[in-house]
Design a protein around this nucleic acid. Structure first.
Length: 403
DNA sequence: TCTGGGGTCCTAGGACCC
DNA sequence: TCTGGGGTCCTAGGACCC
């Protein structure tokens, strides 16, 4: 039986949600109606466009570009900061509303959901449900969504991306040719800025060109990714809506430093703060890791990373930090000027799947216990309550974000 | 005050083993 | 002495997504 899929995508999510929040607080101007963007913090050297209004888009502003460039394009642009805690609340409210329609729902990102409606349609049509959802979200939550209606996830996602805002679009099998094949290749999901020029060089400019291209030739040139893009161009996607919230495969935190750093000692201090954040999140999932990865970005935007394996899995701040420090020393070249530092842990397992390792430091167990106790205090009194000695100065550098 | 942060998956090449 | 070759694990880096 054919699947009945909806893809719900919030229009200009961060900007819309900020607009709704401001209106609630008595603001007269709806920032959705003026040239405006949500931007990162320029004083922290994170000044990029995170979301834009339609008016800002008309000026040629795009997500990801610098606020500096955005202002050049639109001198009267209004820039507002983001509020992730609030965004999570709005995201939750949307998810709650959508959950009334089906249990088979996948939270694809903070502002996108896939709904498998196959078993939940009764006498109504998929399209009617889409219109109902669209209307209810607008009336009850105050922001608009685009909804894609199709028989698989890929086509639903492509459909929700057609014209915006506040639209419902279908993309059924018999509409692929008329609605999708005429689109430029860059509009296809999973075709990024590196692949598009390569296809152009092969004379493939539209999604239709790719769909009609020789499958084996595409596979030969692009490997596995080639097969995927050829299938997508033909509207083929067998993937299921993933209802259950999957455990993460890895957890990482990174920070663009407010000022470039060119010595190991200062980097180590930041690394410790990152280790505390990363392992705190790891323990919250009741998981352990045994791969540690340290990333550096130089002032010239050159990225370099080193990873290493532990002989056992752990969530201990001390153990992870100790390995991370070792990796940092391998990665950092003396005197080099660093813009960003990041720490990730990978190869995660559930805490209860842990095997006893002969390599494990007995101290590790005690450390994990200590960490747990500290976590409980953090949960009770707030993340900032517990601080390691000598960490206060780092606090001003690494702003602890929503955890 | 020009370029975020959090993820997933894939690939190429080296080490190592038989 | 004419330098195999398959399999696995590991690492660094890249491409893509929101």
């Amino acid at each position: 039986m054919e699947k009945q899929i909806l893809h719900v995508d919030v229009n200009n999510a961060f900007l819309s949600w900020t607009a709704v929040e401001m209106l609630k607080k008595g603001e007269k101007i709806d920032i959705r109606t003026i040239p405006s963007v949500i931007g990162g913090d320029e004083t922290r050297r994170a000044g990029i466009v995170l979301a834009k209004s339609m008016k800002a888009k008309e000026c040629g502003i795009f997500t990801g570009e610098t606020l500096y460039q955005a202002r050049q394009k639109c001198p009267n642009l209004k820039v507002y900061p983001g509020n992730y805690r609030k965004y999570k609340e709005y995201s939750d409210s949307l998810f709650k509303l959508l959950s009334e329609y089906t249990d088979k729902i996948e939270r694809y990102s903070i502002d996108e959901c896939f709904l498998d409606m196959t078993e939940y349609l009764m006498k109504d049509t998929l399209l009617n449900k889409a219109y109902e959802i669209s209307r209810r979200v607008k009336e009850e939550l105050g922001f608009t969504v685009n909804i894609g209606v199709a028989n698989n996830k890929l086509l639903a996602k492509m459909a929700s991306d057609f014209t915006k805002p506040d639209k419902v679009h279908t993309l059924f099998q018999n509409e692929i040719e008329s609605k999708m094949w005429k689109l430029p290749i860059s509009d296809l999901f999973m075709l990024g800025k590196k692949t598009v020029p390569k296809l152009y060089n092969m004379g493939i400019k539209t999604i239709g060109d790719l769909a009609k291209a020789d499958k084996n030739k595409i596979i030969k040139k692009f490997g596995k990714h080639g097969l995927l893009m050829w299938e997508y161009a033909n509207g083929i996607d067998k993937s299921e809506v993933q209802c259950k919230q999957e455990k993460p495969k890895g957890i990482g935190n990174s920070i663009t430093l407010p000022k470039d750093i060119n010595n190991l000692e200062e980097l180590e201090k930041i690394l410790l703060a990152l280790a505390e954040q990363v392992t705190f999140r790891l323990r919250k999932y009741d998981m352990l890791a045994n791969v540690v990865n340290v990333q550096l970005r130089t002032k010239d935007f050159i990225d370099r990373s080193h990873q290493g394996k532990l002989n056992y899995s752990t969530s201990s701040t001390k153990e992870i930090y100790s390995k991370a420090k070792e990796l940092l020393e391998q990665t950092y070249k003396k005197g080099e000027t660093i813009r960003l530092i990041g720490l990730r842990v990978d190869n995660l397992i559930n805490k209860n799947e842990k095997q006893i390792s002969i390599f494990e430091n007995i101290d590790n167990r005690k450390q994990e216990k200590l960490d747990e106790t500290l976590d409980e205090l953090k949960a009770k009194y707030g993340y900032d309550f517990i601080t390691r000695a000598g960490k206060m100065d780092i606090k001003r550098i690494v702003k602890l974000k929503d955890i």
